[in-house]
Design a binder for these strands. Structure first.
Length: 272
DNA sequence: ACCCAGGAGCTGC
DNA sequence: GCAGCTCATGGG
């Protein structure tokens, strides 16, 4: 289908934003986007026009939601005052096009447990290894091969040797314990979307290997609480260097997570 | 070789 | 509550 879409949508920036780790850029500049049991191929045709590999029905029932297409990011950027907050204004201007995807909560949880104390290329590598080991081999809409993200049962049944091959280091214990909780029915990750923000956070940090930062990422990128504000080493530097007098968190509610994402991507670009 | 990475658990205070 | 240490691995 052809999608006419005039709000922010920069595929490259989203792929590089550090919120998702399995988007793949194709040789022609299109992107392959795996999600749950499906896969979308999307290409920008012209300003405000995109070619999507799915049908209109599939777009309405899944990809529209995944892309958070009903949210007006332009107006959310428009709330930033250039005078009062020049750094955030510059970040949002430079990173215009980022959206917060509504990723699968399970994939987000495992991905961000893997992410701790590692840089983004290393995170991608481990996740790819995991998918290759125990994901399902599938074909994308154009016949290319890819692997789905493994469910809890698949991870739970992995031998130690196979898990070690994913180069997760000390995190393999966290992954295994989390998968076991889901398999035994004592953790309903999708159910966290129905919880209050506070309760979802408390339940997440109660998991072994999930602290404040990982919990915030799962909330922002998996449960779509767009006010969640993950503080990693980069954001900590931003808060110290750009907001020595304090960051106006209350003023930016309920969009703190979106602004955080602009700042994160912008600051990394400036300093890497 | 070195330092760092979308950090968290643990111990000791 | 907070500092300090440790954890496994790889990117730059």
């Amino acid at each position: 289908m052809i999608l006419e879409f005039s709000d922010d949508l920069d595929l490259k920036k989203i792929a590089d934003s550090g919120q998702c780790f399995r988007w793949e850029e194709l040789p022609d500049g299109g992107f392959r986007v795996p999600h749950k049991d499906s896969c979308l191929i999307i290409r920008k045709l012209s300003e405000d026009s995109y070619e999507l590999s799915c049908s209109e029905d599939e777009y309405e029932s899944m990809w529209k939601d995944y892309l958070d297409a009903d949210t007006d990011y332009r107006s959310i950027r428009g709330r930033i005052s250039k005078k009062k907050d020049p750094f955030l204004y510059a970040a949002a201007a430079d990173q215009q096009g980022i959206r917060i995807l509504k990723q699968d909560p399970w994939e987000a949880l495992i991905s961000f447990i893997i992410s701790q104390n590692r840089n983004i290329p290393a995170i991608k590598r481990s996740i790819e290894l995991l998918c290759e080991r125990v994901g399902m081999l599938r074909k994308d809409p154009e016949g290319g091969k890819y692997y789905s993200f493994p469910d809890a049962k698949a991870i739970n049944e992995m031998p130690d040797t196979a898990l070690a091959e994913c180069r997760l280091g000390y995190r393999d214990e966290y992954i295994r314990r989390t998968a076991a909780l889901v398999c035994e029915g004592s953790l309903d990750i999708n159910g966290l979307m129905l919880c209050s923000e506070e309760e979802a956070f408390e339940r997440l940090i109660s998991l072994h290997g999930v602290g404040k930062k990982v919990a915030s990422c799962v909330m922002l990128f998996g449960l779509h609480f767009v006010n969640a504000f993950p503080i990693d080493v980069w954001v900590k530097r931003i808060l110290e260097n750009e907001y020595p007098k304090g960051y106006p968190m209350e003023e930016y509610a309920p969009y703190n997570g979106i602004y955080q994402q602009y700042m994160f991507a912008y600051y990394r670009k400036l300093h890497e």
